[in-house]
Design a protein around this nucleic acid. Sequence first.
DNA 1: TCCATTCAAGACAATGATATCCTCAACTGT
DNA 2: ACAGTTGAGGATATCATTGTCTTGAATGGA
Lengths: 141, 141
Amino acid sequence: MLSRSGIHAVRALVALANVSDGDYKGAALLADETDAPPNYLGKLLQALSREGLVESQKGLGGGFRLARAPEEITMYDVVRSIEDIRRWTQCLFGGDGCSDGNPCAVHHRWAVVRESYLEMMKTTRLVDLLPTENHRGTNPL
Amino acid sequence: MLSRSGIHAVRALVALANVSDGDYKGAALLADETDAPPNYLGKLLQALSREGLVESQKGLGGGFRLARAPEEITMYDVVRSIEDIRRWTQCLFGGDGCSDGNPCAVHHRWAVVRESYLEMMKTTRLVDLLPTENHRGTNPL
DNA sequence: TCCATTCAAGACAATGATATCCTCAACTGT
DNA sequence: ACAGTTGAGGATATCATTGTCTTGAATGGA
């Protein structure tokens, strides 16, 4: 389950995937392309920059670019930089006493769901989110 | 992913599962047993009452009781009464243009996770959450 | 140097979820 | 009838998330 921040962040990174080498794309343009609030997206990009996912450049012609290739960035990397993912590492009810040794009633069932989600996040890379010839500009992220 | 309200609600219903027939358990006691804020739990119980999951009784000896047997109430029933479950019926990014006909890049991957979650919620009944001999009073919900 | 552009950073506002408080109405036992 | 108990409901408070605004710092071009 992505937060709105997480959605903004992933969309922005996808929009950064096609900037030419050595080039940058500004936050305002990114916000326009992804329908995100410009100033807020700026904050999110700052966070992504602190986490080493993007590089920023001030001044004319400046903006943001990916710090790694789109093949090397997973949705998990992005979301972990933006959201508090502890709820996906804890058990469903968040009970402190719940552990593999003393499991709650839904411990194992939830583990299946949780692993399914985390595995999806960790195996889905930015490159997997890019529009293909199949959707020709209508990739409905 | 349960909200705190959802957690409170499920715990309260579990605590109602062992009320004797024709008897009631008060909101204050329920809150005490489940470590929930008493007044807030009252509101949640109101919602559960409106949805027909519990029945309430005012006055001395009053309180709440399950409207159906614990075998007939699923976690899905509870959560749907309390939370906005739309995020589990939409696609991961919530994009309006996303549909089975014009799927986004994560459409199918997310469908697997979503169905896994919804299936767990729909097949887990209150009776499945009750403490068993195995945990003897230490069911860490 | 001067200026326009762009990110960085902090203060502030809006929103929704969570939680509290108070009063009223319904019910029970005396 | 009366008093105590308990849920119902509304107003308000708190908090995290989301979003806006303003100022400053860095950068590059004229």
